[in-house]
Design a protein around this nucleic acid. Structure first.
Length: 991
RNA sequence: GGGUGUGUAGCUCAGGUGGUUAGAGCGUACGCCUGAUAAGCGUAAGGUCGGAGGUUCGAGUCCUCCCACACCCA
């Protein structure tokens, strides 16, 4: 139909006729402002009603299974931002795996046993004036259970509010009866394979309360103490390396000087440590006052840096001693000393070896550290490494008293009844002085550990503990990856597990390479007991009962009654029934370290539950970097001991959340960010977007300014989607156009989509959420909003509905919609559901959800590298035009770009070729644009590329009242004030 | 004190094996539009690449030391 033939009786339109109604403007009810805090709960309710997680499981069919195994948070308080970060990252993994085509299962869990809860309950008792010891164990345990239960409900609601999908109806709990049964059963595996043994290890011990303390129960206060320098006579020197003296060495009549802040540990001394990097010298005293502790002729070995200080404190004048010679590390390592108290009693007649250790310094003291492996962790560790743990002493009792067998000191206490300094230090110092072993003393103030409860000082005391030997070869038929737990763990780390980021591998490896045996026992109440029996053999060895029938009976009881069965009356007789010599066996009443509980989750979750993977190995464990020492570690050791390998195939780690300045969040500075507050102010999607925009492999900052920025980004993205919805209003399948028939601009968008499809899928697969978001965000703002949408508004608003250009555009918008919305759905779970429903189920009455769909297949054939390269040049030329319009605009020559019709000079043949057949006026949103393949005139506007220039011209003609383009033919058509295109669109009954 | 890691524009991040005036998005400023409108478009200003040495013709990129921050351990 020709527009010019329309009814000539059409009344002349008055000036400024409004053709607005003839346009196809965007139509959508999708609100520009999100109102997330208010609306998110509605979508949560909808998903609950639809049972999205269950539906996905039921419709999984033959999809491959993917399992992210949840590391259980501890059930004792509201969620903090770190929990939110962790669960949101997991949600990205779970949801993107589902949408990539997996049957992606996620069972959340909770860690329920352990000290913090037990402590809370004790605190409640104390407030009521009750003593914990007066309460039956199972009563205390029941209270702990109730406490955990309450917090699990709170945390579950808080996690769900974040939009995290999973089996929230049926999570796993380490305190569930079946979990407690499996934990005990797993422990029995270690009992039966012979790796569990009793040893002892120094722990923080409060003599006042006669109990071991955890790090959390310790506080540090300043305290005045008497430090002492003590002489240890050299007993033997390795003569072949002795230098500078006669055979037999000049050190044989010297003494090594040690320094200690705890004189009461001297009777428990079993060694001396020195630093291989420290300079030592042999000093000889030439002159000393009458009755001095250090006398003329004495030879002492000490660090050069400290010698003057020590000898001064020993009341020697600067000129009254001399440095005889240097003493090297090799020589020191060959020394053996006598215990200074050996001179007083044969009890101390043993050898005291001198050993190199890396914890010795020469800042203070003497450069020699006296080692009491029962009373110091460094000391213990050194003795463990040297294989000397059989030399551990047992001289101190639980109240901090010297035991009966200790000569001279028996009965003296380290602390008195009020927690103040007792007599132990005094008598030891006095004895050392009496026998001439003391070199000097100094009173000083140090910061030292005190009990949080009694405020009294704390000591280190070795207590019997149960260990798992990690270097013992196992004859368990699971040797495919090594014979010992350590071998299997290292093999797993090196070959069986993928690490995101890579650095996690080294971190865990160096920990496993260096770690000592695994201490399992805690002297506490709220946990799974080491459900086993032990006895001491006539030779003094402690052995464990290895009886499968007894174990089975215990596990069965735990399964039906919980681990409380162990602490119930008559438990011993019940479980030992039928065992010969039952009377010899004692119950072990310690409980398992909670890391053993959580290290066993793979057994009672991945292996035992119907929703676990077939091989009972998780695809991913994802936690903070602190879990290299924690859950990754304990799960690895546990798995290697019970099934021969790590229970995971990949480990993803994230950093910590810091305040806006990159420092730890602080309550007192008010820099803390609570997830509940973010949700209240902005909504969970903003928090999720923040997570997706961070580099989670490092530490992440969060605060008001950062959240505001995130909300800004969100708004930009939201509006782009809103435009998409509006432009797609009433889209009909009949409009669809094949790519081959589309204009180049549309095919360029399809090319970008094909590129992004690969980027997004690979990004999600590699857990690179930041990369995915950055690509999508730049695409949405740079390629769509500022380029494609801006250009196509004319066609969308003004073209006839059946125009190929408009149909092609709407086809592409539909393809864009499905990809953008679904690609973003794992991150912006709420908003993408809103967008989805706004298009497909505005009333929200149906059963569809974007979360029930996969990422759409994107044809590889959409890729067109040649076309993409050409459009790079086209866009570069467009940028020059944009720049050129800025001048006239500032000078008020023009306002809108449609008032311009510039000339583009192209002196670059490749760009000229690229522009062939391209309507640059359309792309630049000008009313006209002529291209001159010509040298760029001097007056032309140009950017960096000298071969492209633009000379400005105003567009000739009138402004079309409908499409606003300024064209020469406006006014020459049937309807007044219109250009040919618009006139014909209306004539065709467009609207 | 030890181990591990991080440090590029106001913010969030890019910057294979060292190579021309260090990039993107957001924010900011200014201008335009008023048919995505508590929106949209354009232009611009922002960086001693934590600091100091060194290797090299040339270093954000390699080496050494230092500083700050974090996690784990002591």
């Amino acid at each position: 139909m020709c527009a010019d033939t329309t009814d000539p009786t059409t009344p002349a339109a008055p000036e400024g006729t409004d053709y607005r109604d003839t346009l196809f403007l965007p139509e959508t009810d999708f609100p520009m402002r999100a109102g997330l805090p208010k609306r998110e709960p509605d979508w949560l309710a909808r998903w609950e009603k639809l049972a999205v997680y269950t539906r996905l499981r039921e419709s999984a069919g033959e999809r491959p299974v993917f399992v992210l195994h949840d590391g259980p948070p501890y059930a004792n308080g509201h969620l903090h931002i770190g929990h939110a970060l962790n669960k949101i990252l997991k949600d990205f993994v779970v949801r993107s795996a589902q949408m990539r085509g997996y049957d992606s299962r996620y069972v959340p869990g909770w860690d329920c046993h352990g000290l913090p809860i037990e402590w809370k309950i004790e605190e409640q008792y104390r407030k009521k004036g009750k003593s914990k010891d007066a309460v039956p164990v199972n009563e205390l345990r029941a209270e702990c259970r109730r406490f955990a239960d309450e917090w699990i409900d709170v945390q579950r609601a808080e996690f769900k509010r974040l939009g995290v999908i999973g089996n929230w109806e049926d999570p796993y709990l380490t305190m569930a009866f079946d979990a407690e049964a499996v934990i005990a059963e797993e422990f029995h595996k270690f009992v039966m394979n012979g790796t569990v043994y009793q040893g002892s290890k120094p722990v923080m011990w409060s003599p006042m309360e006669k109990t071991a303390l955890a790090e959390a129960e310790i506080e540090y206060h300043d305290r005045q103490i008497d430090t002492i320098w003590v002489k240890f006579p050299v007993r033997m020197a390795a003569s072949n390396i002795a230098t500078g003296g006669a055979p037999g060495s000049d050190l044989l009549d010297a003494a090594v000087v040690i320094w200690t802040t705890t004189p009461w540990t001297i009777p428990s001394n079993r060694g001396i440590a020195f630093g291989a990097e420290i300079a030592y010298g042999l000093y000889e005293v030439t002159e000393a006052p009458e009755g001095n502790w250090v006398t003329a002729g004495e030879k002492l070995v000490m660090a050069d840096a400290l010698a003057a200080d020590i000898l001064g404190r020993a009341r020697l004048e600067p000129g009254s001693y001399k440095r005889v010679r240097q003493v090297g590390a090799e020589e020191l390592a060959g020394l053996t000393c006598a215990h200074p108290l050996a001179a007083a009693d044969g009890f101390w007649g043993y050898d005291v070896p001198v050993m190199a250790a890396d914890f010795v310094t020469d800042d203070t003291g003497s450069g020699f550290v006296h080692c009491a492996p029962s009373h110091g962790e460094d000391d213990y560790e050194l003795f463990r490494q040297k294989g000397l743990l059989d030399r551990i002493t047992h001289n101190i009792g639980p109240a901090g008293e010297f035991l009966e067998h200790v000569p001279f000191f028996a009965g003296n206490f380290i602390l008195d009844r009020k927690g103040r300094e007792g007599t132990a230090n005094k008598v030891v110092v006095e004895k050392l002085r009496e026998i001439g072993a003391l070199a000097a003393t100094r009173r000083q103030t140090i910061s030292d550990a005190h009990s949080w409860r009694s405020k009294a000082p704390v000591i280190r005391l070795n207590r019997p503990q149960w260990f798992v030997a990690i270097d013992k070869p196992l004859d368990d038929g699971m040797g495919a990856h090594g014979q010992t737990i350590r071998e299997r763990a290292l093999k797993s780390i090196n070959e069986l597990v993928a690490w995101y980021p890579k650095t996690g591998q080294n971190r865990l490896r160096s920990m496993i390479e260096n770690r000592p045996d695994w201490v399992l026992s805690r002297q506490r109440a709220w946990g799974v007991p080491l459900a086993c029996f032990c006895r001491t053999t006539p030779e003094g060895r402690v052995e464990l009962l290895q009886d499968a029938a007894v174990n089975a009976r215990i596990v069965e009881a735990f399964r039906t009654e919980g681990a409380d069965a162990w602490f119930a009356e008559g438990a011993r007789e019940r479980f030992l029934a039928g065992v010969p010599d039952a009377g010899q066996w004692e119950m072990v009443t310690d409980i398992l370290d909670v890391w053993f509980d959580s290290g066993s989750t793979h057994a009672f979750v991945l292996r035992d539950r119907a929703d676990g993977p077939a091989d009972a190995i998780a695809d991913v464990y994802l936690e903070g970097t602190d879990q290299h020492r924690g859950w990754f570690h304990s799960s690895l050791l546990q798995g290697c001991g019970t099934r021969g390998r790590a229970p995971y195939k990949a480990v993803v780690t994230h950093g910590f959340t810091l305040d806006e300045k990159g420092q730890k969040m602080s309550k007192s500075l008010g820099t803390g960010v609570a997830p509940q507050d973010v949700i209240k102010q902005y909504g969970a999607d903003i928090l999720r977007l923040w997570v997706a925009q961070c580099d989670y492999t490092a530490d992440m900052r969060i605060g008001p300014e950062i959240l505001k920025g995130t909300a800004d980004s969100y708004r930009r993205l939201r509006n782009t989607l809103r435009f998409l919805l509006g432009a797609l209003a009433g889209f009909d399948e009949a409009e669809r156009v094949e790519p081959a028939e589309m204009p180049e601009l549309e095919r360029w968008v399809l090319h970008r989509l094909a590129e992004l499809d690969e980027r997004v899928r690979k990004g999600y697969e590699g857990h690179d959420f930041q990369g995915v978001m950055q690509s999508l965000f730049t695409f949405a703002t740079g390629d769509l909003s500022a380029f494609y949408f801006d250009i196509r508004k004319d066609a969308l608003y003004c073209d006839a509905p059946d125009s190929l250009r408009r149909r092609a555009c709407r086809t592409v918008l539909d393809l864009l919609f499905h990809r953008l919305v679904r690609w973003l759905a794992p991150v912006l779970v709420f908003t993408m559901e809103e967008v989805w429903l706004s298009r497909f189920d505005a009333a929200g009455e149906g059963e569809d959800s974007v979360h029930l769909h996969d990422f759409p297949e994107t044809p590889a054939a959409w890729r067109d590298a040649a076309l993409a390269a050409r459009w790079e040049r086209i866009r570069a030329a467009r940028r020059v035009v944009n720049g050129a319009l800025e001048g006239p605009r500032r000078e008020k020559t023009i306002g809108a770009s449609l008032e311009a019709a510039p000339t583009l000079y192209v002196a670059d043949p490749e760009t000229a070729a690229a522009l062939q057949g391209i309507d640059m006026a359309e792309l630049c949103i000008t009313s006209g644009l002529s291209i001159a393949e010509h040298d760029v005139p001097a007056e032309a506007f140009r950017l960096e590329d000298e071969r492209l220039g633009v000379v400005f011209h105003r567009a000739e003609g009138e402004k079309c009242a409908r499409c606003w383009r300024v064209l020469p033919d406006v006014g020459r058509h049937a309807r007044p004030g219109l250009c040919g295109r618009c006139d014909s669109v209306i004539g065709a009954g467009g609207r």
